[in-house]
Nucleic acid binder design. Structure first.
Lengths: 136, 136
DNA sequence: TATAGTGTACCATCTGACTAGCACACTTTG
DNA sequence: CAAAGTGTGCTAGTCAGATGGTACACTATA
């Protein structure tokens, strides 16, 4: 497993860690019964506090993704549906799109904005706040 | 202009606001000389503290995106390059990709993870921390 | 039955994001 | 000149993320 965390994105580290684990499960990189890194070892390698790892693991347990076994470790729970194939296919689609846009000359910042904008346009159900203003 | 902020994403509101403004400029929705909403009015409509809007505006000014005129308002500065056409083209590409993946049955959460994973795979230059662990 | 390795549970502390409220200075408009 | 609307500046406080450290409880293994 390889986890990549972005310190300066504003997104809490424990949330990023959770996302990484979920993604690994979705792609099949982590399978049912696999043991996750130890809290202490992961904290050490990611140069973060063990408590932060604990928080991520506990939330993942609460979401039913992992199982914490006192004294032995953290393990991937049986996932309801194996979406590995679908996710990998999706990854391919996104990959080609990102590659194409990179060649067009978009910066990573622009890419993120375009993507986030598209998501929020396509699915306005979430916790959004709208503002319709004119020229004040 | 329409701004959409996500309260529960973990990303600071002032950063989200900045992104929205930048995106609006990139797409051409906001043009040179256009006046942005008043600090107070924007804060009121977005139901946030004026200080938070101030912070976003000041950072945007620092980045050269807007110009704050004491006593009159905030205005879009002349942008170095008009990337409107490029960005709109990119938006079309991303739009079709997102649509396709939505039809495949991906949730918004999965979509975000796949995208973020792709970005970090494609451009590992940033402030990333790697972990290569095995089964501990 | 030891012992090492694991998760669990606290507590104190620091930092940044955000809120809350007020007074002040400048510009526009009448 | 006066009033309304604007950005500016400041102080104080709340909250969540993250750190740092310690002690404890459980499990696997020799």
């Amino acid at each position: 497993m390889i986890f990549r965390l972005n310190q300066s994105s504003g997104v809490p580290l424990y949330l990023q860690l959770m996302e990484q684990v979920k993604h690994a499960v979705e792609t099949g990189a982590l399978r049912e019964g696999d043991q996750l890194p130890t809290i202490r070892s992961l904290a050490e390698e990611l140069v973060m506090n063990p408590n932060t790892v604990v928080r991520a693991y506990r939330e993942l347990e609460h979401e039913g993704v992992v199982e914490l076994r006192h004294g032995s470790g953290a393990f991937i729970k049986e996932s309801a549906a194996d979406r590995g194939r679908l996710i990998r296919r999706a990854q391919a689609v996104v990959h080609s799109a990102v590659e194409r846009l990179t060649l067009l000359g978009l910066t990573e910042e622009e890419l993120r904005r375009v993507f986030e904008n598209e998501i929020s346009q396509a699915r306005p159900e979430g916790q959004w706040r709208k503002l319709s203003g004119g020229k004040p």
